[in-house]
Design a protein around this nucleic acid. Sequence first.
DNA 1: GGCTTGATCCAG
DNA 2: TGGATCAAGCCG
Length: 198
Amino acid sequence: MKLTRDFYERPNVVEIAKDVLGKTLHTKINGVYTAAIVTEVEAYAGRNDKACHANNGLRSKRTEVMYGQGGFSYVYLCYGIHHLFNIVTNKKDFADAILIRGVEPLIGLEAMQLRRNMTKANPRLSSGPGILSQALGIRTKDHYGLDLLGDTIWLSDGREITNHEIGTSPRIGVDYAGEDALKPWRFYIKDNRWLSKR
DNA sequence: GGCTTGATCCAG
DNA sequence: TGGATCAAGCCG
């Protein structure tokens, strides 16, 4: 069943991030349907989180969607090459988001391999925030600010993940964020092959 | 380990 | 207006 607005609009982004583990991420892009299980995420807590693009209340064309309702997509270009897919959470004016860092392919493996220019389905297909967007066909220009209750990118129930199956670590690549870089807000499914850190 | 790559941000 | 910076991936 498709996740509802209520799921995304809860106030605690860390709690939602853990809940997203095991959920199914679907895309239907240019008529091609793909689906994958979310294996790895990071939480970004709006204006009070130095690692978040909306820290200190920064508003710009890029961050604007984070200030809207929960359950929308925030996709942006990183290092000039990679499209990183985030889920906006919390209610209007609260700029929280969750970065998806790894997925386990379920449906549409051939389409994903074609997009990634690969001949096999190994973790290099979709274990990393940039390459999973590539595998699923998500691009900044086309998929910024989409409603995740729509029919282009959406999430649904998936695999049940219990608390003791969830691993925790600091977030990746946010050393610039001072003390906030230490927050243990990266979550992943333990013993899963489809993680960005091997 | 070193290179790629370009939007974004802020200093001036 | 320009240059430093960056939620990464690829090749070796």
